[in-house]
Amino acid sequence: MEHARHVFRIALVLLVVITAIFLGRGFLVPRSYGTFGPYRADNVAEQMKIRPPAHAGAASCAPCHKAKSEAHDAGGHKAVSCEVCHAPLLRHVTNGTVSGKMPVDRSFTLCARCHRRIQGRPDKFPQVILEQHVTSKLEGAVCLDCHDPHSPKP
């Protein structure tokens, strides 16, 4: 047995190392890790407030833009939320006060995204072959010359 002294020494070293690793690990585990499963539970709350909601929905426009809103709600674009053609409300209003100018894209390309005739669109959906539908030059806000985007007539 006395000749196995080195074996015991190395075993001891090993145990010290392994113990140190496991003790050290205890200090390093993030605080809320494992509360609900193998993940950091605090992150769930962090995700809930990761950023303020940017889109607020069509209803949020009505209080300030009553007339436009009513016209919109009665017309053919009633299913198209204001924020689709304009921008998320957060660009315009933060914490209840106006914080910036609402951008709007008036170009024909915006209209074309939905109404240009391309493969893939359901046949029943109103769409045009741009080059045939527009007789003048196809540029800028050409669609708005004839159509009111808030309450379009076919």
Partner: peptide, 10 residues
């Protein structure tokens, strides 16, 4: 590790 045992047994 401080042990210098090089006997045939070791």
């Amino acid at each position: 590790l401080g042990t210098y045992d090089t006997s045939p047994e070791a």
